[in-house]
Amino acid sequence: MSQSKTMAILKDNLWTNNPIFIQILGICSTLAVTNNLRNTAIMTIGVALTTAFSSMTLSAMKELIPRKVRMIVQVLVISFYVIIIDILLRAYLPDVSKQLGPYVGLIITNCIIMGRAEAFAPANPPLLSFWDGLTSGFGYMAVLMAIAFVRELLGFGTLFGLRVMPEGFVPWTIMIMAPSAFFLVALVMWWAKNMQAKGQAKPAAPSAAQPAKA
């Protein structure tokens, strides 16, 4: 596995092709938990691990899967890993597991996992697929953690449950509720698209520096 390829995948999944603000995948299940940093962290780690392991598994067994039943096999592999995560959470973090409720199970239908399993895993070796899944998960995590940071800070005045805002701070109730998540995602999208548009306008500087390093 060449190093430049792994770096290219990393950059692609974290920025150029970020699952949230470019591909608009997997918003479904995790927006609901982004009013709390700890839950978001645990949830997105779960998503990243599931994506990585299921991409690896599906890539390793790609020759064994008949085309017609491909989708159901993918879903079964993914649910296998999600069940493991669910059991682990129940055993070691029972209160988080309770708060996340159905959203742990909903990792199964997270479009990112299916998307990677469909787009990347069938054409690439297992280890590279694992890396691709993991970095996609990180791209997803970065955006959601940023959103959770704002929502928890303004909605509760805390970070990871620790009080950071001064005494007189009045929490913004809207930040705890659903609409704020939509607005924040849209803001991140807007910012990222503008940045990318700027990057395309003057591509000379960053791309000239990169080959020299590699």
Binding site: I24, I27, A178, F183, V185, A186, M189, K193
Partner: peptide, 23 residues
């Protein structure tokens, strides 16, 4: 719509307003 918000961006903001209405 501002260029960076075209398509999914503005749609998500719209959904946000709908969610507020449903609240």
């Amino acid at each position: 719509v501002p260029a960076g918000l075209k398509g999914p961006g503005i749609t998500i903001i719209t959904i946000g307003f709908m969610a507020m209405a449903f609240i």
